[in-house]
């Protein structure tokens, strides 16, 4: 197609609403290095941006800022009690380093009508978690529409950190949890052939052998929330029959 024929499609392409075959045709054209269309499309992106930038409407609620900053732990650090959840002497050992293990767990409760409203408290700072949450929200939309009740989900960020066997944090999980997303270090998951969730007695209560791949910092795995009654647990990553890493955490009564 010629530049003239493609020009009307710039804006729709920039909006992501061009169907096929127009989309492919424009892409092929751009790949040939057409300067005029590249510039036209660049300007179309600017137009699309402007349409969103000038919208009138209400201000964002003040508390939303805190939720957003919770992503990075800013608010959490400001408001958390200073003391560690484990005795200082133990937590001191936790950071002796070579071992993988220990868990930093972050939880989020998502009420039905206002999805992960409390995600700021969770500090779920991994893309995998976000995407799984979005997926869960989509999957649960009909449920929400029907019940308007709780559709809780937890984002549970498990990091390496201390000595095997020591839970870095203990967390209470509110009632009615249906799903827990385990956010695990992606570099470990990439090396693993299976991931197991084990209880305090070492019994395997959940296994994942088909592990997602990706270039995010963490990999999210969703487990049935009812499995996590109060107690001690460990996420165990296995590679070829050997234990690659053991990431313990504790769930305490509400």
């Amino acid at each position: 197609m010629t530049c003239e024929e493609l020009r009307p499609g710039y804006l729709l392409y920039a909006m992501g609403t061009v169907g096929e075959p127009e989309s492919s045709e424009l892409r092929v054209h751009l790949d040939r290095g057409c300067a005029a269309c590249t510039e036209g499309l660049r300007q179309a992106h600017a137009l699309v941006y402007s349409m969103g930038a000038v919208l009138a409407g209400p201000e964002a609620p003040r508390e939303l800022r805190g939720r957003v900053l919770g992503i990075s732990g800013v608010e959490a650090r400001r408001t958390q009690a200073p003391g560690p959840l484990l005795p200082r002497a133990r937590s001191g050992r936790l950071w002796q380093g070579w071992a993988l293990a220990a868990a930093a767990i972050v939880l989020a409760v998502i009420p039905a009508s206002l999805w992960h409203r409390q995600l700021s408290q969770a500090r779920a700072s991994q893309a995998a978690v976000a995407e799984l949450l979005a997926e869960e929200r989509r999957a649960s939309s009909s449920l929400r529409a029907e019940s308007r009740g709780a559709v809780p989900i937890f984002a549970l960020e498990v990091e390496r950190g201390g000595t095997a066997g020591e839970a870095l944090k203990q967390l209470a999980i509110p009632a009615g949890v249906r799903a827990v997303v385990l956010a695990l270090p992606a570099d470990l998951v990439r090396q693993a052939s299976a991931v197991e969730l084990r209880n305090a007695t070492g019994e395997t209560i959940w296994t994942a052998s088909s592990l997602p791949d990706g270039d995010a910092d963490s990999t999210g795995l969703k487990v049935d929330g009812r499995l996590l009654t109060p107690g001690r647990y460990a996420v165990v990553l296995l590679a070829g029959g050997r234990t690659l890493a053991r990431l313990p955490f504790a769930v305490i009564p509400r």
């Binding site: 964002a60 957003v68 992503i71 206002l114 409203r117 995600l119």
Partner: peptide, 22 residues
């Protein structure tokens, strides 16, 4: 403006910044 629900919009703002952060 897109979802027309304040609660959902707040969640989406959070998702947006989470994505940017990551």
């Amino acid at each position: 403006r897109i979802v027309r629900d304040t609660g959902i919009a707040e969640d989406l703002v959070q998702e947006t910044f989470l994505r940017a952060w990551n």
